[in-house]
């Protein structure tokens, strides 16, 4: 065959069964699945009309970040179109909304991710398809909602919908205001945030006036007190003591180290506008609190 010499055994086999070779032709089975090459149906169900826009709503609490929105669309011509938009939201946790005008098409995919350095829990995003532009009166499709970060974000299809207060919050260490002498510590939960106070530390230096000072820590709304701690001990004149509060601590003081500790409520969530403050009974004009250092778990306020 073709000038190639076959082994004798093969030649003998071919010569012995010529009829069998014709009855059972060698070949693969034909495929059971075929594909349409014309009048193809769209790969996605989301039809975007000329009056639709994609609204991207952001609430951000971290300065200097970027948010990327990437869309893939199938145009009526059969072309694939990609849209990429970048936003730099303010860090004041105020809701901002950006609109992306879309051509009539089928939406194949949408992703929203954060730039490098975006911390988990800092920027909450919601992507919705709205009808009617900035004065929209209906949003037929909520594509995705949740926090975006450096290497994670939102994706459609297969989205997740995460409420701003869902799941663990973002741990933050805050250095508060160093009050002028004679003033209390006052820290306010900022607008757009929700805090759970984990630890609170501050140091009080008393002047030479011989009066015992009692230190309370409390939460209030500005007008209504919701909780006040009980003083662990009284601090006398010309002393510097560190005060520590955290959940689960046993109230005690250590005279040698001049540290005292007391317990916080186990799980208290403070909405925006609530105040964390010291109340120092017997405080003198020359007494001085240092800037407090405290650890909170923070969510974006819905």
């Amino acid at each position: 065959m073709n000038g190639v010499e076959l082994p004798p055994a093969v030649e003998e086999a071919e010569e012995a069964q010529p009829e069998a070779a014709e009855e059972f032709p060698w070949g693969t089975l034909p495929p059971l699945i075929t594909y349409q090459l014309r009048d193809v149906q769209p790969a996605a169900w989301l039809h975007v009309t000329p009056n639709d826009q994609l609204a991207v709503q952001l609430k951000n609490g971290q300065a200097g970040i970027g948010v990327y929105v990437c869309l893939r669309l199938l145009l009526p011509t059969g072309e694939l179109k990609e849209i990429v938009e970048t936003y730099s939201p303010a860090a004041n946790r105020v809701s901002e909304t950006y609109y992306i005008t879309l051509p009539e098409s089928y939406l194949l995919s949408a992703t929203v991710v954060g730039s490098g350095g975006v911390k988990v829990g800092a920027c909450w995003v919601r992507a919705i398809l709205v009808y009617g532009g900035p004065k929209w009166h209906s949003f037929p499709v909520l594509l995705a909602a949740g926090y975006v970060a450096e290497l994670s974000g939102l994706a459609w299809p297969y989205p997740r919908y995460i409420h701003p207060c869902e799941g663990p919050g973002r741990p933050r260490v805050i250095v508060g205001t160093d009050p002028a002498p004679g003033n209390q510590i006052t820290e306010t939960v900022p607008t757009g945030a929700r805090w759970r106070l984990l630890t609170f530390r501050a140091q009080l230096t008393t002047n030479a006036t011989v009066v015992d000072r009692l230190v309370f820590l409390g939460f209030d709304t500005g007008t209504q007190v919701v909780w006040v701690s009980v003083p662990v001990f009284s601090q006398s004149a010309s002393q510097t003591w560190g005060y520590h509060w955290a959940a689960g601590l046993q109230a005690r003081s250590l005279a040698g180290a001049q540290i005292c500790q007391d317990a916080l409520p186990d799980y208290v969530v403070l909405p925006a506008g609530f105040v964390i403050r010291t109340i120092t009974a017997g405080m003198q004009a020359g007494d001085d609190w240092e800037a407090p250092n405290y650890l909170v778990e923070e969510w974006s306020e819905p």
Partner: peptide, 27 residues
């Protein structure tokens, strides 16, 4: 007269509010 930073190490903004003139444990 309080002293504060407006930007924390984690990139978050800090919003100062003045302490009151007087406060007591009763609110």
């Amino acid at each position: 007269g309080g002293v504060y930073q407006d930007l924390m190490a984690d990139g978050s903004l800090y919003f100062h509010a003045c302490p009151p003139l007087e406060v007591d444990p009763r609110g």
